[in-house]
Nucleic acid binder design. Structure first.
Length: 511
RNA sequence: GGCCCAUUCGUCUAUCGGCUAGGACGCAAGAUUUUCAUUCUUGAAAGAGGAGUUCGAUUCUCCUAUGGGCUACCA
């Protein structure tokens, strides 16, 4: 069927969106853009019990940070507004009733307590209770009760639900874009609740089908946890007479825990030392906090790149992809079928790759706030110069200060290992000599200083490593950092001399 | 328990019947280097098991095992 591609990301605002959800959104987005279609954001807040304030804003902000653009939906509007299911409640009752009239659904008056009791009874006998063709004629349903009785109960305000009347012993043949053909016998399925009078809201199944139809969704791309309810959804389309406009389905493999069993959950995050959420989150109810990729210093492009490759691959050996490249390369038939374990290490690697590719100017903008935090006030040009020198050795912007503080601040203490190794023997004397050599250089540029110092080292027959590492101890205070002339040319002659003097004056050489 | 989905190096994955099974992360070694990194090179590392189809199975089919999901008036 060829029709305009329209996909939706339909999260439930029950908490922060975790990275599995972000990936689902991403694949929807890539698919939409690749096919010139539209991306819809629908909020599925049909569970009044689990609603969490702030979750919706979190979702919208997360998508924005990731660069996943919404064409239609909550926050942007569109021709099928409203896109928040709680604001569409009157729509669903009509469709639920239509199903009852057509004989595809029925009223059920059992209370949750009654159902619990029945389940317990079954369990006690070692059986599993299923609300299906075997029991619906014996329970308090409109199939068992007289029409008058049903009317009476509804009129007097008894609570009721509408359940789907799952056909008996029929094979539903389905097609999934990722998994191929799937068939299920309806006798193994139960009569799912479609609508509940208690809060006048539909359940996921009804709301989903009705909205996808009304919003003209062409492809449903969602997590694998929905595969078991696909038969019900097929049947719902049939019951409504919408099979000719039924969307195609693609069920994505799940994101699994890095170690151990199970799907990646909200709990895995902080404990295991990596974020499972795109943004920092504070629970409005419990006050619990969770790390986010954004606040932990990941670039959104790196985060997206990493996520895109978790369950999809281009079939080539390219692994660094811009969003546009992902859009161009993406296709559902290269999505893998099995669950993918999330790898924190790879996320870091991706971030480092993006760090190396960032321009000095971009990094300067990110680095400036950090510098200011440490009381350093320099031009963007200077910040960019330092970033350019150090970006190869950093994974996060947060690494920068540790990596570069010596450019701006003289060492106040000296690394023990470096001191032990180099602040002894002839080295202090050589450093004093080097001080005079440096003092005599007028053009302190990187090239000139290097030329003069190297010539001097050669003339004297000193060991390159001895001299340079001793100088490093004086200027950096530790055995780390970029080439020494990057440092000398940056801090300038006078500062070099001051730092050398400070080391000589303050640290007693070993033997 | 029932139903459904899956199963290639530790991990993410390539392979659409011909494989000396490729790449990446991580790991190890080496090279480069004034240090730390980066970078480069090299290395160890995989087809869950059993049947069948076939001249030939990692690739197709079935069984078993294992992993996962679902089994709510949650999504």
């Amino acid at each position: 069927m060829n029709r305009p591609v329209r996909v939706r990301f339909a999260p439930s605002p029950t908490g922060p969106l975790h990275i599995g959800g972000v990936r689902t959104a991403l694949y929807n987005y890539l698919f939409a853009r690749h096919n010139g279609g539209k991306m819809i954001l629908r909020i599925e807040d049909t569970d009044s019990q689990r609603f969490v304030p702030g979750a919706e804003d979190y979702i919208i902000e997360s998508l924005k940070w990731c660069g996943i653009e919404i064409d239609e939906g909550v926050g942007v509007g569109g021709p099928h507004a409203p896109y928040r299911q709680s604001e569409r409640r009157e729509i669903y009752l009509k469709y639920a009733l239509q199903l009852v009239d057509a004989g595809w659904a029925y009223y059920a008056f059992d209370t949750p307590e009654e159902l619990d009791a029945i389940r317990k009874e079954y369990e006690a006998e070692g059986k599993t209770f299923a609300y299906n063709f075997e029991v619906r004629g014996k329970l308090a349903t409109s199939l068992a009760l007289s029409a008058d009785e049903v009317r009476t109960r509804i009129d007097r305000g008894d609570q009721w639900v509408i359940r789907f009347k799952m056909p008996e012993n029929e094979t539903v043949e389905m097609h999934d874009l990722i998994r191929g053909d799937v068939a299920v016998n309806t006798s193994t399925l139960d009569d799912k609740v479609l609508y509940k009078s208690a809060d006048a809201l539909p359940t996921y199944h009804l709301a989903n089908i009705v909205d996808d139809r009304l919003m003209e969704v062409s492809h449903v791309i969602r997590g694998e946890e929905w595969l078991p309810s696909l038969p019900l959804h097929y049947l719902l389309y049939r019951a409504f007479g919408w099979t000719d406009v039924q969307p195609e389905f693609a069920h994505l493999p799940l994101l699994l825990k890095p170690t151990g069993g199970g799907k990646l959950s909200k709990r895995d995050g902080d404990k295991m030392g990596f974020p499972v959420f795109p943004l920092y989150w504070v629970s409005p109810t419990t006050g619990e906090t969770a790390h986010g990729y954004r606040e932990d210093g990941y670039f959104p492009e790196a985060f997206i790149n990493m996520l895109a490759l978790l369950g999809w691959n281009p079939g080539t050996e390219q692994e660094i992809f811009s969003m546009q490249e992902l859009i161009d390369a993406f296709s559902l038939d290269r999505v893998s079928k099995s669950g993918a374990r999330f790898q924190p290490d790879k996320a870091k690697w991706f971030n480092a790759q993006y760090m190396h590719r960032k321009s000095d100017a971009e990094l300067a903008a990110l680095y400036q706030p950090v510098l200011r935090e440490h009381g350093i006030d320099v031009s963007d040009e200077i910040a960019g110069r330092v970033a350019g020198i150090m970006k190869e050795r950093a994974t996060f912007i947060g690494d920068f200060w540790d990596l570069t503080s010596f450019f701006f601040v003289a060492p106040t203490e000296y690394d023990e290992k470096q001191t032990k190794k180099y602040w002894k023997g002839q080295n202090p004397a050589i450093l004093a000599e080097l001080r005079e050599v440096l003092a005599g250089i007028d053009d302190f540029s990187l090239e000139n200083t290097e030329r003069i110092v190297h010539a001097w080292i050669e003339e004297k027959g000193y060991g390159m490593g001895q001299v340079m590492n001793t100088l490093r101890l004086a200027l950096v205070g530790a055995g780390k950092g970029p080439g020494m002339y990057d440092v000398t040319s940056f801090i300038g002659r006078e500062e070099c001399l001051r730092r050398i003097d400070a080391l000589i004056a303050n640290v007693k050489p070993l033997e």
